[in-house]
Simulated assay, not measured.
Amino acid sequence: MSVRSVGERIAYYRSVARPRMTQQQLADAACVALGTIRKIERGERGVSTDTLEAIADALGVDPGRLLGDREVTQSRVHAALPALSGAIAAYDLPDDAPVRTLPQLRVAVEEAAGWRLAAQYTRIARALPGLLPELLRGYHAATDGERRQWADLLVRAARSADAVAYKAGARDLSARMIELMRWAVPVAEDPVLTSSVAYVRTETFFVARAHATGLRALEEAIDAAPAPDGTPATAARGALHMRAAVIAGRAGDGSAAGTHLSEARALGDRVREDVYCGTAFGPDSVRVHEVSVAVSLGDEHAGRALDVAREWAPPHSLPAERRSGFYIEMGRAQLWAGRPDDAFEALKVARRIAPQHTREHPWVRQDAATLRRLKRADAEDLSNFAEWCAAT
């Protein structure tokens, strides 16, 4: 490839992507303005490290390729993990640096939540090491009348930070973020937010493979959740049932999985698809989880996941992280069903939807490595994909 500039390399990889990406599609996937993409490709402006990494993730290539060398660059997400750890190490010993107003910080927290739903972990990793200590300072300095609001923002910000840690494989840091959330959420006095923390806490049970214990914790959270009288409370309870169905599947408890999935489906039919406290819930999310439960229960249940995929695909209105998760799960189901080519196509769809989420997902690495050993699909295409996600 005889290209000379970063912009020309970006244009090249965009043109050879499968399917080919337009400048608008690349801009959408990288969360970069269309005008910026055009100027970079024309060589009319430089490109920052953050923007370069976002574009590389969207294209499914290592940033080093866009810079003209084959060196593997360290992910900015992984590089930010020590700073995130340091941000909460002294959660009870805040410094005396300035603190913005509650309305200003609410905007910043909501922006981080949007990045999480779009699986833009690089942006979260850049913002949260400064935002978390600022929220902790505000929380400790708040009056009794305002502390609930500070606790609410702190929990929501930690939720976004946990996404970065968990997806990047920093399980100990993720567990510490969850404990920070559990420490602050009682002060917020919001039952729906408490349900959200119980939902996220399940990550620790997944990591420990303590699925039966995790199911018990979720069932206790369901019992403590507010009655499903309004949309937020209905969504909160429904999301807990979705999560319980998946972990019951991991525990091999098909009966419990089916019961919780039925409860989630009934609650999902009562609300429109929406997002509460960073977690999507509604009829489409329940259908995504139906696939996840089938995959969790194992090979013999893969057929149910394939049946769902024949009838339905997640709409664009679902958060990118959830849509890409659907195709990652479908890739595994298709691999188990002896359809390696279809499995690879599903993984590529997941990458186009949410590159950072797909790149960090351990199942993607495992399944790409399996596909590589099977020597199926286009060899160069598969090798490039396996290199991109660090499959071994």
Score class of each variant (00 low, 15 high):
residue 1 M to A: 15
residue 176 R to G: 06
residue 242 M to L: 12
residue 277 C to I: 13
residue 253 D to Y: 02
residue 45 R to K: 09
residue 126 R to W: 03
residue 30 A to V: 00
residue 383 S to T: 15
residue 220 E to W: 12
residue 319 P to T: 10
residue 143 T to P: 00
residue 179 E to T: 13
residue 292 S to P: 00
residue 241 H to P: 03
residue 160 S to L: 08
residue 249 G to V: 02
residue 80 A to H: 07
residue 8 E to G: 07
residue 308 V to M: 02
residue 283 P to A: 10
residue 252 G to L: 01
residue 376 R to T: 15
residue 356 Q to R: 14
residue 281 F to L: 10
residue 111 E to K: 02
residue 210 A to F: 00
residue 378 D to V: 03
residue 43 G to K: 06
residue 221 A to P: 10
residue 262 S to M: 03
residue 11 A to W: 08
residue 205 F to V: 01
residue 96 D to H: 11
residue 229 D to K: 08
residue 91 Y to L: 12
residue 16 V to N: 05
residue 67 L to G: 11
residue 195 S to I: 11
residue 246 V to H: 01
residue 8 E to R: 06
residue 46 G to M: 06
residue 17 A to I: 12
residue 62 D to T: 03
residue 108 A to C: 04
residue 6 V to K: 04
residue 288 V to W: 01
residue 19 P to R: 07
residue 70 R to Y: 10
residue 121 Y to L: 15
residue 347 L to W: 11
residue 12 Y to C: 00
residue 364 V to G: 02
residue 381 D to A: 12
residue 299 D to A: 09
residue 362 P to L: 02
residue 206 F to R: 05
residue 83 A to R: 14
residue 234 T to D: 10
residue 161 A to P: 07
residue 233 A to T: 15
residue 264 A to K: 04
residue 288 V to N: 03
residue 103 P to K: 06
residue 158 A to V: 01
residue 353 I to N: 04
residue 32 V to A: 00
residue 41 E to T: 12
residue 36 T to F: 04
residue 215 L to R: 08
residue 230 G to N: 15
residue 231 T to Y: 02
residue 127 A to F: 05
residue 55 I to P: 00
residue 102 L to Y: 08
residue 117 L to I: 07
residue 242 M to H: 01
residue 372 R to E: 09
residue 280 A to R: 07
residue 83 A to P: 02
residue 237 R to S: 10
residue 201 R to P: 01
residue 325 G to E: 10
residue 346 A to D: 12
residue 310 R to G: 04
residue 311 E to P: 00
residue 214 G to V: 05
residue 389 C to E: 04
residue 18 R to H: 09
residue 122 T to Q: 11
residue 369 A to G: 08
residue 167 K to Q: 13
residue 390 A to W: 09
residue 123 R to T: 10
residue 385 F to T: 11
residue 69 D to G: 13
residue 108 A to K: 05
residue 59 L to S: 04
residue 80 A to D: 10
residue 17 A to V: 12
residue 247 I to H: 01
residue 338 G to M: 06
residue 117 L to D: 08
residue 82 P to L: 09
residue 150 W to G: 05
residue 208 A to D: 11
residue 117 L to Y: 03
residue 92 D to L: 13
residue 301 H to Q: 07
residue 247 I to L: 08
residue 98 P to Y: 05
residue 249 G to E: 01
residue 55 I to Y: 00
residue 217 A to S: 11
residue 267 L to R: 07
residue 130 G to S: 04
residue 152 D to S: 14
residue 231 T to A: 10
residue 137 R to L: 06
residue 2 S to E: 14
residue 353 I to V: 15
residue 169 G to D: 08
